[in-house]
Structures are given as C-alpha cells and as structure tokens.
Nucleic acid binder design. Structure first.
Lengths: 112, 112
DNA sequence: CTAACGTACAACCAAATGGTTGTACAAACG
DNA sequence: CGTTTGTACAACCATTTGGTTGTACGTTAG
C-alpha cells in the first residue's frame, strides 16, 4: 500500500494478521499494562495452554510482543518500539482515510 | 480488546484480517482515490480475475468497500463511513499504545 | 444478431490457521 | 529426593484461505 512507513509489506501483513483475533488483541491489551507469564495469560481463556502459546508466538512473530525467561516462566510483554511503529502505521492509514473522507464531505457540501 | 469503539469483536476481526494482505491494502488504496471496476483492478495483479474478485469480497465483507453495478461492470469504492469507523478503531489502538509508550518513556526518564 | 467483455459462482487444490493431545524437560517446591 | 509447575514442541485434525480453472449469464460493441 506504500503508505509512509518503515515497515515492509510482509511485516504489515504480520501485524494486521496478529491483530485479527480477539484473543491476541486481548493478550496485547493485558501485556500492555504489565508483564504476564504465558500460563497466567492462558488461565483466562477457554482454550488449551498450547493454543495460547501459539497465539503468543504469532504476536512475537509480528514483533508486537517479546518473551523473556524468568525462572521457569516466560514473561510476555508488549514491545514498545514495535508498538510505536505499528502505531505510526495505523496513524498513516487513519490519516489517509481521513483525507479521503474530508474530500468527500467537501464534495457533498458543494452539492448543497 | 474492548477499546472505545462501536465495532463488535467479529467486525474488528474482519477489518484487521481484510487489511492483512498487500493486494487487499492496494485495492483499498486505489478505490480510495476513485471508483474502479473489478476487472480494471484485476488487470494490475499477477493473479486471476477470480482471485481478485475474492479479495474484493473479503473487503466487502469487512465493510471497507462497496460494490455498485454500472452496466456490466461492478464499481468498487472504499466506503467512507466504514473507513471512518476503522479509522477511529485504529486511532483508539494507536492512542492506547501511545499512552503505554509515553508511560515507559517517563519511567526511563526517571531512571536518569 | 453475434462476438467479446465483465461478472458470478462452483469445484477443486495446496497451504496456512487454530485448535487439540501427548511427550519431554528444566525449575521450583515440600 | 520426588512432585508439581511452566514451558517447548511434535503430531494430528478440521476448517479457512488464497489461489486455480471452468461454466454460465447479462451487457455492450460491431
């Protein structure tokens, strides 16, 4: 889509795909506030631990989240740098669309 | 993720999924500027007409795009209202993340 | 009218997704 | 020590995805 951004098409694909699932969005939300082990995350979803592990892996692959070992646990946290890049990406789209919508509004206004 | 938005989880799923493909993002970009028939869109991608038809259907299902018949053609255009809703959704995420990042920045600043 | 064009839709296929269970292993607990 | 906890990973499965080709049908052009 060649919006102003430093992200490749494949990275944008991965980011949007990672966010296209309610469980994964919830994991991002929770790890935004503070760290959480994979099992503590898994405790709140009606699916197996392994399934949650996979969701975390998808988020990790998109760079939205990082995992750091602490003892036998793996702490998951939202990665601020990648979130900032994703944020700029979303801003770029929002801005693009805003421009389009305002242009349409202007056309409608002219019609009156 | 329960961000401030009027969209259901399933709708958010569909929107992000629709945007998780470079061809579909390109179609949105092109129909943002002006209408385009499905075949005129398809002419620019290295895939069959039917494949492009399916991509348009995904965008349509997400509400990002509408199709209106004109003669034998079907004109595709980005839907301003849904784009505005998607824009607010993206804004909400960006804002959420911005808050988190700024909070982290503040913590780092305190450490110095 | 006939031919070409634009679309719809079904059938099919390979690969990816999203889930499961089972096994293995290191770390923490008692 | 042995047991439980947290994780990793493989195998498996059903469904979805993203692509294909082929057929049918209305619309436009000659």
């Amino acid at each position: 889509m060649v919006v102003q951004t430093e992200l490749s098409d494949a990275e944008v694909d991965r980011i949007f795909h990672a966010l296209a699932d309610a469980t994964r969005r919830d994991i991002v939300r929770r790890t935004l506030v503070g760290d959480a082990s994979v099992s503590s995350l898994a405790a709140d979803y009606a699916m197996s631990f392994a399934a949650v592990q996979k969701h975390v892996a998808v988020l990790e692959g998109a760079g939205l989240v990082t995992k750091t070992p602490r003892g036998r646990e793996r702490l998951v946290r939202a990665d601020p740098e990648m979130l900032a890049r994703a944020q700029r990406l979303l801003d770029a789209y929002a801005e693009l669309w805003r421009g389009r919508v305002e242009r349409l509004d202007a056309l409608i206004a002219e019609d009156t």
